[in-house]
């Protein structure tokens, strides 16, 4: 069972990358864009720290870790989330979702993993470099980075589930490109540690849209501020959201009435 999914995934991504590599200029453009956005983000952070202000007890390097993780998330969503889930809308609109549903494979898996876009790679690279640089400045041990990996992966999973739930609403509303834009806008809050926000924002970004679990908590784990508790917390959130997204998709499919019928 697992082996079959693995083989399918390899085929999906192999063909997707082969197709994308035909547009090599795009890769250059996306590298330039992510470099520009990195410089802009650093500039934004500098505006706070430059005048001697700091976010509660987050030093400049510690905030850089958060920004690095945020960049990793941007890369992740550009590589996997955006290209696949924007396709759901097209599938529903044109009725080609029928063909996906007929295949002897989980339709959620098919819709979520069909495409891998290399355009997010520069962001993934720059994010890693930033985390490593800030970690070097802070003198972090290799173990510290490793301890952050599980929370980061659970974060990816949580974000994916949220995104998929929104994508699934396309069954009812069809044209929902903008819903993902709304989510993307809210995720922008993740570029700063959650402690930098006023109380109301903190509550919203922890309990309503769990942005805190995506960037701040992995950063805290890397910085050695409470590990086991956060592992459990982020794992619980990720598993719960994944399960909800799965149930929601099954529920949504009951309302799917192909395009031509």
């Amino acid at each position: 069972m697992m082996a079959r999914y693995w083989a399918v995934l390899r085929l999906f991504w192999g063909t997707a990358i082969a197709a994308e590599l035909e547009y090599r200029l795009n890769f250059l453009i996306s590298t330039l864009s992510s470099l520009g956005s990195l410089i802009g983000s650093l500039f934004g952070l500098f505006l706070f720290y430059g005048s001697g202000y700091q976010f509660q007890d987050w030093s400049w390097e510690e905030s850089l870790v958060v920004l690095g993780i945020f960049t990793l998330f941007q890369g992740f969503s550009a590589t996997v989330l955006a290209p696949n889930l924007n396709k759901i809308v097209t599938q529903v609109q044109e009725g080609t979702l029928d063909f996906v549903l007929l295949k002897p494979i989980s339709s959620q898996f098919w819709l979520s993993a069909r495409i891998l876009s290399p355009w997010g790679f520069p962001d993934l690279l720059f994010g890693t470099i930033m985390v490593l640089y800030a970690g070097l400045q802070l003198g972090l041990s290799p173990w510290a980075y490793l301890s952050g990996v599980p929370t980061l992966l659970f974060g990816f999973l949580s974000l994916y589930s949220l995104w998929f739930i929104l994508g699934a609403t396309s069954i009812w509303f069809v044209k929902i490109y903008n819903v993902t834009e709304v989510l993307r806008g809210l995720l922008d809050a993740g570029r700063f540690p959650i402690a930098a926000y006023p109380m109301a924002y903190r509550i919203f970004f922890t309990f309503v849209i769990p942005v805190a679990f995506l960037t701040t908590i992995p950063a805290q784990v890397v910085l050695g501020q409470g590990q086991v508790a956060w592992w459990i917390g982020s794992a619980g959130l990720a598993i719960a959201l994944l399960q909800i997204s799965h149930l929601f998709w099954r529920f949504a499919l009951r309302f799917y009435t192909s395009a031509s019928s």
Binding site: S51, Y53, N178, V179, V182, G185, D188, A189, Y197
Partner: peptide, 29 residues
């Protein structure tokens, strides 16, 4: 419905509003 989402996707300034309002309380700006 689409329009409403367009309006909501412009939340970027509101995020910075929160963070700058918090920063302004420190009196360093």
């Amino acid at each position: 419905a689409e329009l409403l989402f367009w309006v909501l996707s412009g939340t970027f300034p509101l995020i910075f509003m929160g963070i700058w309002a918090q920063a302004a309380q420190s009196g360093q700006f």
